[in-house]
Computed example of a mutant assay.
Amino acid sequence: MAAAGERAREVLTPQGLAAWQERDVAARPRPTLDQLRDGGRFEVKEVRVPRAGGGGEVTLVSARPAGVREALPLLYYLHGGGMVTGNAWSVLPRLLRAWALPLGLAVVSVEYRLAPRTRFPGAVEDCYAALVWAAGHAGVLGVDARRVVIGGKSAGGGLAAALALLARDRGAAAPVGQLLLSPMLDDRGDTFSSHQMAGHDTWDRTSNATAWRALLGSRYGAADVSPYAAAARATDLSRLPAAYVDVGSAETLRDEAVAYANAIWRAGGEAELHVWPGACHGFDTLAPHAVITQDAHDARTRWLRRILQR
């Protein structure tokens, strides 16, 4: 826990980005497929999906409770890591324990390309290509294509919001819900909470700006950044899947998350918003046994159950 706390207080800068990424590989080891199978409780496999235009493949890690033959609802999950770190394997143990068994659902975790090696739109296009493949190969995965929730945390939450917009606009693979946990939505970084939490939050405005600069490259700071990069840039939030948005009150990203839920409501859409009092970015990872973490988990689980049982 001490190591996690030390890392949480570290500020990400452009000069330190390469070293940050190297340390993340060591600090966040990938569990093996056998470890993810957890003694036979889960069926786990890796699937490689072609990218659009013949540009290589996207790796998916597909997991489901073992011994279940019927088609399951699917949580299509995009890992966090500020667009610059993280991997599809390390998030799965927690997701499988929290939701796969209790709710009877399958999970697909996406290994999208990271910035700055791959700039926008690489990551979101990886996520889109794999979502379309998953919907078209539901039988292979043993999932119900009519009950797909896309979700993610931090950078993954921002990607999930952008993916919902992209899927709507391209008319393909319509999910029924979007689970947006402390999502990175706005590259402009000029909300009140962004300034209020400068130097205080575990992910502050300096780290946030560094991550957005890594993703956008020369487009960082432009007036016309695509909503498929930063969902807060979208001017039309109609016809989106039901959204669950949660964020801590002591987060840099608080105000952009609240504004996004409000914009969905104003567009006539459905959103459930939770702002957890006193919580910083990544509070549930840093304090997994805290009462507020349990409350957040329970609220997310209730929403998932309602959406998937419609």
Rank of each mutant, 00 (worst) to 15 (best):
W203H: 10
E43N: 14
N208W: 12
A66I: 03
A231K: 04
W265Q: 09
Y244C: 03
C127P: 09
D246M: 03
V68G: 01
R302G: 01
S218M: 00
I307C: 12
G53N: 04
A162R: 04
E251C: 07
G199T: 11
V258I: 13
A232Y: 05
G221A: 14
E272V: 12
H289V: 11
P183E: 07
V176Y: 04
Q21C: 04
N87G: 08
D126L: 10
L237Y: 01
A138E: 12
P29S: 08
D126N: 06
S193H: 09
T191H: 05
G221M: 06
G177L: 03
H289P: 00
W203Y: 15
L72Y: 10
A167F: 08
P288T: 06
W203R: 13
R97C: 02
L75W: 05
S154M: 05
D190Q: 14
T252L: 15
W20S: 08
N208A: 15
L131S: 08
Y128K: 08
G221T: 06
G67D: 10
Q309L: 12
R306G: 07
T32E: 05
A115E: 11
V124F: 02
A18K: 15
A243H: 03
S109I: 11
G104E: 07
A174Y: 01
A172K: 09
L308K: 01
P288N: 04
T252N: 14
D255G: 13
V44S: 00
T285F: 11
A167Y: 00
R219C: 03
D295P: 00
V107N: 01
V58P: 04
Q294I: 09
R302V: 11
T252F: 15
G199H: 07
G104N: 04
M1C: 13
R168E: 00
V132P: 01
P175V: 05
R7M: 15
K153Q: 14
G157R: 05
A174W: 02
V132W: 12
C280I: 13
A222N: 02
S207T: 15
L273C: 05
A229K: 07
C280H: 11
I264S: 03
G189T: 09
L166S: 01
Q21R: 15
G104L: 02
A214E: 09
A27I: 10
I150C: 08
G268H: 00
T285P: 00
H79M: 00
A257L: 03
A279V: 12
L304T: 03
V132Y: 00
G278M: 03
V47K: 05
G139D: 05
A174M: 08
A290N: 11
D224T: 12
I264N: 00
D204N: 11
P227W: 13
P73V: 02
A267W: 06
S238D: 02
C127K: 00
